[in-house]
Design a protein around this nucleic acid. Sequence first.
DNA 1: TATGTAATGTTATAATATAACAAACTGAGT
DNA 2: ACTCAGTTTGTTATATTATAACATTACATA
Lengths: 127, 127
Amino acid sequence: MKALTRNQELVLDVLQRSARQMSAYDILDKLRPEGLKAPLQVYRALEKLMEIQLVHKLESLNAFVSCNHKSCHGSDMTAFTICQDCGAVNEFSADGVAALLKRQSVGEGFKIYQTAIEIKGTCARCM
Amino acid sequence: MKALTRNQELVLDVLQRSARQMSAYDILDKLRPEGLKAPLQVYRALEKLMEIQLVHKLESLNAFVSCNHKSCHGSDMTAFTICQDCGAVNEFSADGVAALLKRQSVGEGFKIYQTAIEIKGTCARCM
DNA sequence: TATGTAATGTTATAATATAACAAACTGAGT
DNA sequence: ACTCAGTTTGTTATATTATAACATTACATA
Ligand SMILES: [Zn+2]
Ligand SMILES: [Zn+2]
Ligand SMILES: [Zn+2]
Ligand SMILES: [Zn+2]
């Protein structure tokens, strides 16, 4: 587990403190006081953080969240619910789904490398 | 089942003839000879086509495909494999996965409206 | 025909992401 | 300490994807 660089620390820290997903530009704005100036500085940090699964990208929102799911590091399976009313995002365990997808995709002759499962709907608080 | 408008027909037609997913701007370029000039003309057509599930968006690619899955219209469950080597996209039936996700998300007090399941890996031809 | 709804055309701009390249840092091996 | 390779950084510029705003036109239907 390699140590994070300064920019990676900064980006991860901002994401962890945030209650919500953030766009790369949201993150950049938060980090201007620390001296960051260019989108690439954020995107490069995000790229590494996603590689080691400390951060996930919500593809359907073009936004990023820190991983709060103890057991997903090293797994290739990540699933999110996204509430369309309040915007709340929740990472949840989808092991059964993962296994099923794997079986089914093997049936189709497909070797899974990574999955994005994003479920939009209404969360409990908003029902 | 309302009839499609001219722009919607044009966009759907281009997508159906394409062997691959296309970005909105790919589609626009194909349709310049037909008189389309602005991105919005394409995006608006895509919006309607997605509403009636004749077209799906691949969120992780910011690209669009026509639906070739006979039974998915009216369903809220769509799943894709995306080959990272050759780029091939395949829409596949994920009823079991859908059911499982539904059960699990109900457990979390979440009402599903729509899902995006995108699986990246290597297809049979590329293995 | 009157009336409301949906679709269109157009210009401009916002939001998201990457290319290219030079400079600085890091760690392993000598 | 020196060297080399690989990684990270800073910076400017640009590419790609998507929407805002607003005037206009088509279409259904009562
Ligand atoms: Zn996670
Ligand atoms: Zn909610
Ligand atoms: Zn479909
Ligand atoms: Zn392939």
